[in-house]
């Protein structure tokens, strides 16, 4: 340890200069210039806020029937400002039902994605990281899942269990985990050969720590992107199931159910179908745009 040692420190400290912006700054910069992400993201945020504050925002109780005020037209036709979107066949305020309907759509969508994401990602990461026999089991599970007719099973399960929101979340969650598993498995496979995993093992880190602390942060982007796309699909399935009478049961204000209830008035009150239909369309397309945007923003080059 001579004067040379002393010199070694400053020579390196001189390159303390940071050469590039952090990955987060990069991402923020890309997000700011991504129109799809901004548009989709703000609509999703708006709908989420509406759903959360539904009791404050909704002008009436969505379950309150008033048979004297049935089938009032919305304000732009012959209606009045008391019921902006008019009322349905049972005299319930359509705007209030629409606002509460957002709650069901988002709860089912996010709830199912949370279950599917957790289960699928965990299965996928474990298979990809451990490889060998563990992976064979995971691949087998994924293949079995892919071979199942998902919607058919959803239909039959819902008709057996009944259509509460909780049951729908569980059933749809366990029907959509496969995509998370496929993607996270392949990412984990690529990552497990990286030296930072070996370094963590050499330091004595447990497998749980490696999976949750080292692998998961690297797979998170992919999980979020898949989740955003899956949420849209689940929302559509929920609407379809409710429309068929197999989903959320009346008098819950599900958008799919609202369309189903309006079927009889399709020809002389078309707005009863158009309004919830447009709500589903807008939410799904916004989620898809946000998902695409997230994928672009977190694209591989952003991960260095």
């Amino acid at each position: 340890m001579t004067d040379a040692t002393v010199k070694a420190v400053p020579e390196a400290l001189a390159d303390g200069e940071i050469v590039a912006p952090s990955p987060r700054e990069e991402m923020r910069r890309r997000a700011k210039s991504h129109i799809g992400l901004i548009f989709g993201g703000s609509i999703v945020t708006l709908v989420t806020l509406i759903a959360i504050f539904a009791p404050i925002l909704a002008p009436y109780d969505p379950y309150d029937q008033d048979l004297t005020r049935r089938l009032i037209d919305p304000v732009w036709k012959t209606g009045n400002w008391a019921n902006i979107l008019g009322t349905d066949a049972l005299g319930r305020d359509y705007l209030s039902r629409l606002i509460y309907g957002a709650r069901i759509s988002l709860m089912v969508g996010f709830g199912a994605a949370a279950i599917a994401g957790t289960v699928g990602s965990l299965i996928g990461i474990i298979g990809g990281y451990f490889g060998g026999r563990v992976d064979s089991v995971v691949v087998y599970l994924i293949n079995v899942k892919l071979a199942l007719p998902g919607l058919l099973i959803a239909l039959s399960l819902v008709s057996i269990v009944g259509g509460s929101v909780g049951a729908l979340v569980l059933i749809l969650g366990f029907l959509t985990w496969d995509r998370y598993a496929v993607v996270t498995r392949s990412v984990a496979q690529q990552l497990r050969g990286n030296d930072f995993i070996t370094a963590a093992r050499a330091v004595g880190a447990s497998q749980t720590r490696i999976i949750l602390g080292e692998l998961l942060p690297n797979v998170m982007n992919q999980i979020i992107v898949i989740a955003s796309l899956e949420i849209a699909i689940v929302i559509l399935i929920e609407a379809a199931l409710s429309f068929l009478g197999l989903g959320v049961k009346p008098p819950e204000p599900s958008w799919g159910l609202m369309i189903a209830e309006a079927r009889n008035f399709m020809f002389f009150k078309p707005h009863l179908i158009a309004i919830p239909g447009f709500a589903i369309f807008l939410l799904v397309i916004a989620i898809n745009m946000a998902g695409d945007g997230l994928r672009d923003v977190t694209a591989p080059e952003g991960r260095n």
């Binding site: 040379a4 400053p10 020579e11 390196a12 001189a14 390159d15 200069e17 050469v19």
Partner: peptide, 13 residues
């Protein structure tokens, strides 16, 4: 040699 020569710092942007 007991020590190698080195060039301090990094390439500029």
């Amino acid at each position: 040699a007991t020590r190698l020569g080195s060039i301090p710092g990094i390439v500029p942007s």
